[in-house]
Amino acid sequence: MLTAPGFLTNHELDRFLGGGDTGQRQRQRLRHDHLLPMPAELGKVRRFNIALFPRFALAGLVRDLARIPDATDVMAAVTARALGSAAFAEVSAAVRESARALNVWSFDALVEGVVERAADALQEWDEVVSSVERALTERLGISFISELGVIERVVNDICRVSLASGRVEFVPCGRVAAATEEGNTVVLERVNVLSKEMGYVMPLETTLDKDELELTTWFAQMSAPEPEGVVAERQVSNFEPLPYERSRPRRRRWRGASTMTRVPADA
């Protein structure tokens, strides 16, 4: 298991939509426009009100989704089916328990708690989500691509993520749902709707410990192909031509002698 979580909550969506009240209002507007599907409402857990969305609901944040005929209906239908799966029932129970252990909202900690409590069900749920995403790609042309990466640093609310492919991605912190600590392994989730692409940084859903994770990411980076392909290096020469040339070529009268081509007889 080395992917982005197959679910996210209203808290992450609100963050992606501007955070605070603005984000909440935006989410409600998208719900009203049917761009976001109906979530699984878990209700209040401690002081957190939680609604669960499948990962592919991220497509609804790209407003162009409405331009694809039947897209909102299809999204609603596949979401309802996915949320009705047995795996999701177990996952949502684990989410509730995990959230109960939180003092402050942290998607990383929530996911970690779910992995601890329901790793098998989570894997099954991820497979459901991945299969729906493949179907959405086929039916609506929406693509979902996950890429492993490491947070390098955050400067001026821009998160620099070094990806396993060797590329570097700059993501505004408003689209980062993972802890922004330097060296944190994350997943960049790219959602493409009608050629408009949005990238969201999610925590990694994994059973590996920190060192194993770092090792896995390192190997992924080491074996990734060069994004630009290999370009032949320019030969550096220290040669400085004379500022003048011969006015006419000189031909040697004595030619045809060589010290490098004669092969002496065998001793």
Binding site: P243, Y244, E245, R246, S247, R248, R250, R252, R253, W254, G256, A257, S258, T259, R262
Partner: peptide, 30 residues
């Protein structure tokens, strides 16, 4: 700066000598 034709002839005469010296080394002595 840029050499004149006469000076080039003079210098070429030196190079011609070295051409022959090289020929002796690389041909006759080989």
């Amino acid at each position: 700066g840029k050499p004149g034709d006469d000076e080039q002839d003079l210098a070429d005469a030196v190079a011609d000598v070295l051409d022959l010296a090289r020929f002796i080394e690389a041909q006759d002595l080989e």
